[in-house]
Nucleic acid binder design. Structure first.
Lengths: 235, 235
DNA sequence: AAAATTGGCTTGTACGTACAAGTTGTGTAT
DNA sequence: ATACACAACTTGTACGTACAAGCCAATTTT
């Protein structure tokens, strides 16, 4: 079964956006131009653009055109009021451990599948803060199988997900979280500069991606005293 | 400016679903039947069905038809692994305070607008549990303006949101949350049957609805020891 | 009796056309 | 110089047609 025409067009346009051929903020060729360029009807072009719209790659402006959007940082819980967007002032990120091989942890609330556990695990750890206040300790695990050469490359814009998109053409398509309120333990408390025993918010996440072999597992420990975790959801 | 044709059809079908004329699990009339019934083309019918699909009222089955879906309980954070779905076993809900008039609280993290504060406030409070374990204390505030006669009616299926939909044709269209980890205080601790000073998860929510005059403000206090709060997000 | 075919339904994709509606720059009239 | 009208673009809506693809039950063939 051959791929559908609108799917093909969607894929072509999507990868051009991901690779930066169509830059963020610029307009795509008009629907009629796309029609003649790919020898298809406007119905089909619009179907493809609809998909791009749904996935958040473009926004349409009546009478003007389709503009390439800054893709939402796909952080699930933190989608809209994300870490950096929610906070005014100087946001900073420190690597406590650079990406490196490790063993899969046994105590993740959302457990990886058997296929994943059979592959090599890559881990990194960051501390994110606002000014002098550390607000979030972040631990990440994922299978190195889908990301050849990951240890040797730099993070695009310092962002893990932007790197996935621009270097590997992989997008996050879903996420799943579990939230718990805990006492800060003797390891996390000093890192977050709070007293041991303070209440902290633990977020366990699994991100599913467009690559079937790649899920990202995260554990976040948040000090919500000054900066609560914000979230928004549009139905 | 007259309403668009596909919007009209969408609204008609939607209200028939909400009012139960088309029952959950049954199939809508076929696209061709809708065409001739409303004297429109299939393009327009499909556009209307697309909207219903997007809003989660139906699911389409290739070769069979469009089936009316059990509408997702629009609880934002709790969308998929919602309170009742996430938990097997006997879920129970106890009203600590039935809906009644009250003054707007001053300390909500997400503040109501001035127009709302000028109207009468309705409040109710519930404790939700699994078996013997209380897991969530829930407080809700909203303006009585949009919901005439609310104090006199029963909750459909015991659900606040189902009541909104079936009795007032109002749907939740967006939600916004703030999450904090706190110590349980002397009021919430005994209700949740935990020690004062235990870490609990506080969720402050605002639900926006299809009625511009109605937002629902909630404060949830969750004991996450046994049952963490689950959430899922599809991009 | 079981298996395969057929026909009639459904939704999915794609073609083509026409005009409405929004945006913007250009040129004309004031 | 300013205001207005218009033309030329854009996307949005709606028409109509054709066939592909999936589902299902009745019929035919094996």
């Amino acid at each position: 079964m051959p791929e559908k025409r609108y799917q093909q067009i969607f894929t072509i346009l999507k990868s051009r956006i991901q690779q930066g051929t169509y830059r963020v903020g610029s307009y795509l060729p008009s629907e009629n131009e796309l029609c003649s360029h790919y020898s298809i009807t406007r119905t089909t072009v619009r179907r493809a653009l609809d998909e791009l719209l749904k996935e958040g790659f473009i926004e349409k402006e009546h009478g003007k055109g389709s503009r390439v959007k800054e893709r939402r940082q796909s952080l699930g819980l933190l989608t809209v009021k994300g870490f950096s967007e929610a906070v005014t002032g100087d946001v900073n990120t420190v690597f406590l451990q650079m990406p490196q091989h490790t063993a899969w942890p046994a105590d993740l609330p959302i457990q990886p599948g058997k296929e994943e556990l059979a592959t090599e695990c890559i881990y990194f750890e960051r501390l994110r803060g606002v000014g002098e206040i550390p607000v979030m300790l972040e631990r990440n695990w994922f299978s190195g199988k889908a990301l050849k050469g990951f240890l040797d490359i730099d993070f695009a814009d310092g962002s893990f997900f932007k790197t996935l998109s621009s270097k590997y053409l992989i997008e996050v398509i879903a996420s799943e979280q579990e939230l718990r309120a805990l006492y800060a333990d003797e390891i996390t408390a000093p890192l977050l500069k709070i007293r041991e025993g303070s209440p902290i918010l633990q977020i366990s996440i699994r991100f599913s991606t467009s690559n079937r072999n790649l899920n990202i597992y995260g554990q976040l420990y948040c000090n919500t005293d000054t900066y609560p975790i914000g979230n928004m959801y549009r139905h």
